[in-house]
Design a protein around this nucleic acid. Structure first.
Length: 565
RNA sequence: CGGGGUGUAGCGCAGCCUGGUAGCGCACCUGAAUGGGGUUCAGGUGGUCGGCGGUUCAAAUCCGCCCACCCCGACCA
């Protein structure tokens, strides 16, 4: 491709709307253009990258037994009602009415469609397993699109769905997919780390996410410095540790005028915050829930939501709290009645805690569970933090941020039961098909790649997904020798199957070098009168500072070596 | 949905407070010079000032409503 003819112009100033690096560079390099919030056109350079990523994904999916197909974007709302997921998706579903006033959904994903499709095509255990997959645009009316392609309302996604006769088959395919995902990210030159993940509203047992580590990532990853444990902070657990509180003593009321926070209470009683019990109030589908947790630990709302099996979970409002008869600031499970109490298991890690007195300006000491209060549910609902101990090896946990680029779920039979996807086994018994699903955010991966691979000059493409492998900067194209050499090299490289971008514009060297750095092809070749005097060209990897002078003789071979690894 | 911010040429911005019919840089076009990290000079094209309504002799500017986009939060298989 000649830059003079390339559709897409680089900018000097970055559009003000972009904050994250990848968004800025995608816009500055002219690779994408925004049409509406979270909706972008992909210009040729971006499209080349996306196609390369897609092709790597295709190869690995096919190798793992996948079969590519294409499914409708337009889906009747009824299939979402059938699965019940119209409620869990809620307003995120784009909906529209056709001329007959039928409500249609713009597919945010395709589990419903594929499961129905499978139900029409599978009768016998002999028809299974099946691993259909799709690489398509999906649409979600995100509450807040952000960071360019990282969270769009229209985005490209690969989803593979596994259909098995039993959980053993699911487990096998699940493991195969995790391996395929590792292959994919490695082949893309984008090392992703696999973390344990929350399976979300859709349910299911195991779930893993693949994260590209980047400071700007939306997700927090908790990982162990000692072993291989790594989990999304939404899912991560840690060892809470014992708190020495002595032999259980008698309950004692203490006046604590004006003190409502854990900091104040701990300071007043001259004890660490871990010796206190904290009360937090939530509204789960509108009903107030009283949550008790050790004072030094925060509530993990994802865990809590899963525990309560509710559609909506939020902090309760002051009005809801007081209406429930709770004294905010001095609330306590001790003596509380008529309200659901959920406790974190951290309340069992010590004795003689300090808790609220359930009346203003009063706390009580020497509170012990279960001697002094009862709870409805006790479970792990704590947020694991860096510095905590690893649940696997008791090593030290650390935290970092990442962009979720892949997600695997064991769905089980939830959807197949809802959608009527069953088969007859060898004994003639009808059973629901056991499902899994496995997604990769293709367009997000493009952004994440840049987020992870750039410098202050621009993008640094990993070779396997670079739009072009070689970028020829022809300085002073009006010089006939430069033009002839650049053209010849351009043609010869292409004849070798090498992807080349030729900067044939009448621009100054500075402009060309800056654009080459911005666009970020792995290898830059500079053809100029200066180097031609020595029958040479300058070759520089994008990651290197200084170019190397290489003789024209045999240059094609040299370049081929460079880009073959 | 709550909080904050911004809408003036393709991009970045000034002008608005104190009304008088729009300006700068980049990009683009023409010409000349220059020649290895966004080079210089001269000339030129391009704008419903987000939209609608109001006030006024006169509105980018003042007032009202609406819309879009961005950021924080909520939210986000």
């Amino acid at each position: 491709m000649r830059i003079s003819q390339l559709f897409g112009k680089t900018l000097r100033d970055v559009p003000a709307e972009a904050e994250t690096v990848s968004h800025q560079l995608l816009l500055k390099s002219g690779m994408i253009h925004q049409l509406a919030a979270g909706v972008y056109s992909y210009l040729p350079l971006a499209w080349r990258v996306l196609r390369k990523i897609e092709n790597i994904i295709r190869e690995e999916m096919d190798r793992a037994g996948g079969q590519e197909l294409m499914m409708p974007v337009l889906q009747p709302i009824e299939i979402w009602q059938q699965s019940g997921r119209d409620r869990s998706f809620g307003k995120t579903l784009f909906t529209l009415c056709d001329r007959r006033e039928r409500t249609l959904v713009l597919g945010p994903t395709h589990e419903e469609v594929i499961t129905l499709l499978i139900s029409y095509n599978v009768r016998s255990y002999r028809d299974l397993p099946l691993l259909p997959y799709q690489i398509q645009t999906k649409l979600r009316d995100e509450p807040r699109p952000r960071a360019g392609l990282v969270r769009g309302r229209e985005f490209i996604m690969k989803d593979l769905y596994s259909f098995d006769v039993d959980t053993a088959g699911l487990d096998k395919n699940y493991q195969a997919m995790l391996r395929a995902y590792n292959n994919i990210f490695t082949r893309c030159g984008l090392p992703a780390i696999m973390v344990e993940a929350d399976s979300g509203a859709i349910g299911g047992k195991d779930s893993h996410e693949f994260m590209l580590v980047a400071p700007s990532g939306e997700d927090e990853i908790i990982y162990c410095e000692g072993c291989k444990y790594a989990a999304n902070a939404e899912k991560a657990t840690s060892i809470k540790g014992k708190v020495e509180g002595g032999e259980p003593a008698a309950i004692e009321e203490v006046a604590t005028p004006g003190m409502t926070s854990i900091e104040q209470i701990a300071a007043f009683f001259k004890v660490p915050q871990s010796r206190t019990l904290k009360a937090v109030f939530y509204a789960a589908d509108g009903a107030v829930v009283f949550v008790v947790i050790r004072g030094d630990i925060e509530v993990n709302e994802v865990k809590l939501k899963n525990l309560l099996h509710c559609d909506e979970l939020r902090l309760a409002t002051e009005a809801e709290v007081s209406k429930a008869g709770i004294v905010a600031g001095s609330a306590s499970p001790v003596g509380l009645a008529g309200i659901k109490i959920v406790a974190d298991d951290s309340i069992t890690t010590g004795t003689n805690f300090i808790a609220g007195g359930n009346k203003p300006d009063t706390h009580i000491r020497n509170v012990n569970y279960p001697r002094d209060f009862k709870v409805d549910i006790i479970a792990d609902i704590a947020r694991a933090r860096a510095g905590d101990s690893c649940p696997k090896c008791e090593g030290k946990l650390a935290s970092t941020h990442g962009i979720e680029v892949g997600h695997a779920f064991k769905l089980g039979t939830f959807l197949s039961e809802k959608m009527g996807a069953s088969f007859t086994d060898a004994e003639g018994v009808t059973k629901p098909i056991v499902m899994g699903c496995y997604g990769i955010g293709v367009s997000r991966l493009l952004s994440a790649a840049i987020e992870q691979n750039h410098d202050d000059k621009g993008i640094i493409w990993p070779l396997p997904i670079a739009p072009f492998q070689v970028h020829i900067c022809a300085l002073y194209m009006e010089n006939p020798q430069v033009a002839a050499t650049a053209e010849k090299l351009y043609a010869e490289l292409q004849a070798q199957g090498i992807e080349v971008l030729l900067d044939d514009r009448m621009e100054s060297p500075g402009v060309k070098f800056n654009d080459a750095d911005l666009l970020g092809m792995p290898v830059r070749v500079t053809v100029s009168p200066r180097s031609l005097e020595k029958n040479s060209v300058e070759v520089k990897r994008r990651t290197e500072k200084k170019p190397t002078l290489l003789p024209l003789d045999g240059i094609v071979e040299k370049l081929r070596e460079l880009i073959s690894g």
